[in-house]
Amino acid sequence: MERVRRWQRKWRRLTWGDVISTAIFLLPLLIFLVVLYGMLVWTFYVSMANWKGTAPNYTFVGLKWYKLMFSLDRFWVDVRNNLKWMILGVIPTTFVALLLAYLLEIGSIPGTETYIRTLILYPVAMSFVVTGTIWSWMYQPDKGVFNTILRALGLDFLTGRFTTDPATATYWLILIFIWQYLGFAVIILQSSFRTAELQEMIEAATVDGAGRLRILFSIIVPNIRGGMLILISLLLISALKVFDIVYVVTFGGPGYSTDVLAFFMFIATFQQHLVALGAGLGVIIFLMAFVVVIPYTIYAFRKWFE
């Protein structure tokens, strides 16, 4: 009873001004969100329809295309590769970025910080199509940049087959990813260092005579959890949806040893004209992304509404 009365009071107090302001604040976000989720449902449906060929076909066939998908060796290669990407693309990037950001904080020689930041940020500003092409030149085993330099230095034993070796090709692709995202990661971490509280804590610890590495791992890292979480989620998702690097550098090859889900989806949808299969692969990508996003959402939710 008490509750109802409170509601009524609330309603009565609601003015047109409130309604309008709420609408202005909320409507754009709400509309875009509804469209986005509408399309998500649409994709789910397409993955269970019999859409193959160039013309849309919404005949329901259940899990037919998922069964086909799971029977394909290529699909499992993709899942394995995507997992490699998500582990090896994220952990080393975060770790190196952390060390680098810290190093820039404590030991920057005047002028070097801007230089380094510009240096590692340009890949973000540059077309992935082009950086991918450059890296495929770097990697060419016979005349590529790396092997040419190594041979010139007399280090022939270090030369490698890089992306032409089916067993290790994916790792060389991941290295490009790290190269590309390092600058971004450093910036995000640097900006989370720069809070007044954290700086005070560091100063206090320095006065106490704590070692620099100790400060990094037992004071800074626990206190920038928010920035770390954003960074890791961002990297995880970028690694999960990676397409451009594979498309440009190896086109999924040799064979399909460097194939990933997003690339297979592209091939299935637009080259094989198996749109339902492509949609199904999209659903799998979503489910994997969902797993990644859950920890972030829970964390953010707690912080947000604490």
């Binding site: 399309m39 998500l40 649409w42 397409v46 995880l236 999209g282 990508i285 979503f286 972030y296 509404f305």
Partner: peptide, 24 residues
């Protein structure tokens, strides 16, 4: 709160997932 969770999930939605309907 509900809206926040929906936004949180959509936050990192790989665009491939909605590519087919979006194009349509």
């Amino acid at each position: 709160k509900v809206l926040f969770i929906l936004v949180g999930i959509a936050l990192y939605l790989p665009y491939q997932v909605v590519l087919i309907p979006l194009v349509q």
